[in-house]
């Protein structure tokens, strides 16, 4: 699993090199031909191995076991989510997520049971790509990462942080590490099974997944209140709102000196002068 970091880093470098050859249609996907190749590869792996395993897991593993597994990984997620929220100055969400970790790790038996939600501590959704976006970092080029899925250059921060500081260091034998991530991947994939039919029936599943991912990330960086819809493809108006590259343009508008999380005084939902 330690291979993953150099792979993603190499991909990032590649993306930067090729960032110059963007077409006006989608300057957010400068390495589209490479990405499409990886997408085809990922889909082949998914069809032959991952999806059947996830389907079997969903069909035959008893509900309480699946629930406990999801809760366990959700608890690890809350730990990182708390830190990611803290770095955005979202102290309430950071506190709630930290509270969930404390409750669920102790009373919830290392996260197998989610007592936090029952105590009114709602699950947050912060991640480190969102943290960077909150402070004005643009999404950068879209990447389809082998064995992983869609990311943007900025959002690689999240899996990199989670891999580097994840509980993997405390699992000793390699077999244990493989088992940990194996179960993680199957659990995550099984929850995406209901979306398969929709993606498979698209004219261009690659573009559909990319555009859905970019819009969802744009929405998340602004906590569900973006200044405008992320415009992708060729819109009707020549002077329409900026597309994903506008994220980078907006990043430039943010004051560069505000690197210290100065409380929650900079709400991410505040639009900059982004509309023409």
């Amino acid at each position: 699993m330690t291979h993953s970091i150099p792979t993603s880093l190499r991909l990032c470098g590649l993306a930067l090199l090729l960032a110059g050859c963007a077409t006006p249609q989608n300057n957010y996907d400068p390495i589209e031909p490479v990405n499409r190749g990886v997408f085809t590869f990922n889909r082949a792996i998914d069809r032959t191995v991952l999806r059947p395993v996830a389907q079997t897991y969903a069909d035959y593993v008893p509900g309480p076991v699946k629930g406990g597994t999801s809760n366990f990984f959700s608890n690890v997620d809350d730990l990182f989510g708390s830190v990611a929220a803290l770095f955005q100055g979202k102290f309430k969400e950071a506190g709630t997520s930290a509270g969930r970790v404390v409750v669920n790790t102790t009373f919830g038996m290392f996260g197998l049971f989610d007592w936090g939600t029952r105590m009114g501590l709602d699950k947050g959704n912060a991640d480190f790509g969102q943290t960077l976006g909150h402070w004005g970092v643009g999404s950068g080029p879209y990447l389809m990462v082998p064995f992983f899925g869609p990311l943007t250059l900025r959002d690689t921060a999240d899996p990199l942080v989670r891999l580097t500081w994840g509980p993997i260091d405390y699992i000793d034998p390699l077999a244990g590490q493989i088992a940990y991530y194996g179960v993680y991947v199957v659990d995550a994939r099984s929850r995406l099974l209901p979306l398969d039919a929709m993606l498979d029936s698209q004219i261009d599943p690659y573009a559909y997944m990319r555009d859905a991912y970019l819009q969802a990330r744009w929405n998340k960086v602004y906590d569900g209140q973006p200044p405008h819809q992320l415009q992708l493809g060729e819109g009707d108006d020549e002077d329409a709102a900026p597309d994903a590259s506008g994220v980078a343009a907006e990043a430039a508008d943010h004051a560069p000196g505000s690197s210290v999380p100065a409380a929650a005084s900079v709400p991410a939902s505040t639009p900059d002068a982004s509309t023409p």
């Binding site: 249609q25 989608n26 004219i203 261009d204 555009d211 969802a216 929405n219 819809q229 415009q231 992708l232």
Partner: peptide, 21 residues
């Protein structure tokens, strides 16, 4: 005139694949 699920708009999400065709 538009619906967005988790920020994903039904209309915007089809624009690229429709444009290609």
């Amino acid at each position: 005139f538009d619906i967005a699920v988790d920020g994903i708009s039904f209309t915007v999400n089809n624009r690229n694949q429709f444009g290609t065709v």
